[in-house]
Design a protein around this nucleic acid. Structure first.
Lengths: 371, 371
DNA sequence: CTGTTAGCGCGTTCAC
DNA sequence: GTGAACGCGCTAACAG
């Protein structure tokens, strides 16, 4: 018998047909089946036809684990993001998915949950599967994770931030510059007492804060009321209030938190005339709080968000924000990965996608300055 | 040499240490290393110590593909969702991730993009990796996908909907009932001319619509203006307007679309007194449109959403919605999976998590009826 | 263009 | 408690 699972065998497969079964049925060698499946052009028309039939008749499905073991490679594109609850990263993922369309690449998403150690574990875990390439978010991997990625032997692209010292290639934008640009926009619109509001500071948020401070300093202004982080007790309280397992960083972008933090900012700096929010959800809350308090936006209070989510233009007044190219970032990362894989990549190893100020009504104090 | 990669070999590994290298260094058999790694309690203290040292010295990392091939199993929990852009499913995923915490299970997410054929492909693809279990969204898999899942030989849980005929086990809630409950709530609040607004109808949306219609019929009311779907041309136009690759269903939940569809509904039924939106984003748009038009909510117009996203309670007026237990659904699915894996599952094979009406100000026409 | 041979790295089986 | 042998299903290398 040519069957792969002789009855007397000490170990049997799951009963699923193997490549040997197909080969036997088609009357060819196993390797020919293998080739017919992966590079049909290398196999003669006749044999290919017989093989295809046998494959169909047996409902043969190649075992990817065996393939990976034998060939030492897979078509898995590992993508690590810090959160799946933030539009920011799901937008990136859409770009990634679109980028791999029509490709052999299989996307596999890992959620680091903003935990560097979880990221490290995931890097190790993904690398064990010998991925075709890796895309990781941010540029602040732990030394261990970085070392693993450097030795991964596959293309590695860092996204959503830039650094002078990428693991291999990084494509993203400068958060400090983004923060600076929006603050300068607010200043240009005549706002002077500008607060920065944030629930939780990721490494990237800190960059935006830096840019905000620089812009203020350059304009000779001071920070009226900087509420950039919640106390530990508040953090715990919020966590307790939420469904078990809801990570704090999600809570920290809630509109209701925006309302609360805006109230606080106003209490400690009653002469506030603008708020730069670390994300659009917080800004939405500020907008509603102004509405509830009868504060006129943009006349008495400028409100700006970050990320330019889909609701910014539907607000009333529409909400100014910082447009980051998240979809494009994901797409570009995959494009680069593919080029790195076939050796055709020729771009620089640091790519800055830039950001744009989406100036809308919520910061339009100077008439005629905004579309 | 006992090394796994003799210099003269025709095929070499990647140079990475193998279990044989560890065994050689520790002076034991390969199998003992294998055991020490997976079931330390079966190996004597002394050997375990030597092995651990060797593992560390060589920075040995087990090859998961080889392990999977030899053992015919993995610790991968495959999770298929129709979208990563909707909070709905990312909430589910949080539940899933929290559920596997402290477990050997490795979550692997697949994005079907609301395409049954893509789902079918993904099912096939995931199953080839011999996952420990699968969690799939909805109950409307293609016959082929269903057949594959039935023969997968691993626990399979369907979520976010219920059916009398699950593949194996399904945990979710009834969308028709959800639609009915919210409509009844609106009726109880004195609204009579209630429109249902939706940009795009998924299978689950259709269920909600069914419930809405039933509630109206039961109350002897008619549908004033049902704008439940966009024309094909509009669909194309919207797609063209958006960034390449932005799937229509995303566009279809935009607040700006809510504004637009509300204007239309109002145009064809000026006596409209309430709007039940298929999701909260649309409802947010309706809220802003009312604000812009000077329509008093809830007095002159009741506005209800669906899903109860995080911004509903921060709106002004706060937005009524249907609370679905997405996080809990993900968590429960994993719990069930784990029990199915060790044979301890004893629940029914259809679990209805139910929904709740989150009654807030935007539908509070009858004073005192809402908290 | 096709087949043969020899593994890929690990876990199962069975014996000690 | 430990180890030797064998095989999981597939593909790289080389020969024809």
């Amino acid at each position: 018998m040519a069957s792969a699972a002789p009855a007397g065998s000490r170990r049997r497969g799951l009963g699923r047909p193997t490549i040997a079964d197909v080969a036997a049925l088609a009357g060819v060698g196993a390797i020919t089946v293998s080739r017919a499946l992966r590079s049909p052009e290398l196999v003669s028309e006749t044999l290919r036809r017989q093989i295809d039939k046998a494959v169909r008749d047996l409902a043969y499905v190649p075992d990817l684990n065996a393939r990976a073991l034998a060939s030492k490679r897979t078509d898995v594109l590992g993508v690590l993001v810090p959160s799946l609850s933030h539009t920011v990263f799901t937008d990136v993922l859409r770009g990634v998915y679109d980028g791999v369309d029509g490709t052999k690449l299989q996307v596999q998403v890992g959620n680091t949950r903003y935990d560097p150690h979880e990221e490290e574990r995931l890097v190790a875990s993904f690398l064990r599967h010998k991925p075709a390439a890796m895309i990781v978010s941010g540029v602040d991997q732990t030394p261990a994770a970085r070392a693993m990625l450097e030795n991964a032997g596959c293309p590695v692209v860092q996204i959503m931030d830039v650094t002078d010292d990428p693991i291999q290639l990084c494509i993203g934008f400068r958060h400090d510059e983004a923060g600076r640009l929006m603050t300068e926009h607010l200043i240009a619109q005549g706002y002077r007492r500008i607060a920065f509001i944030s629930g939780w500071m990721s490494i990237r948020s800190t960059g935006r804060l830096r840019g905000y401070r620089k812009a203020l300093a350059d304009a000779g202004l001071t920070e009226p009321c900087l509420t950039h982080s919640l106390s530990r007790e508040e953090l715990t309280r919020l966590a307790a209030m939420s469904e078990p397992g809801v990570p704090p960083f999600l809570e920290f972008s809630r509109p209701s938190l925006g309302r609360e933090m805006f109230r606080r900012a106003l209490a400690s700096a009653p002469d506030l005339d603008a708020v730069f929010c670390n994300n659009d959800s917080l800004a939405l809350g500020v907008l509603f709080e102004c509405l509830a308090q009868g504060i006129d936006v943009p006349r008495d209070m400028g409100v700006a968000g970050f990320n330019d989510l889909d609701f910014t233009d539907a607000c009333s007044p529409s909400l100014s924000s910082v447009r980051t190219h998240r979809y494009r970032n994901g797409y570009a990362a995959v494009t680069a990965v593919r080029q790195l894989m076939d050796g055709s990549y020729e771009g620089p190893n640091v790519v800055d996608l830039g950001v744009e100020i989406a100036a809308r009504r919520s910061t339009q104090r100077c008439v005629g300055d905004v579309a």
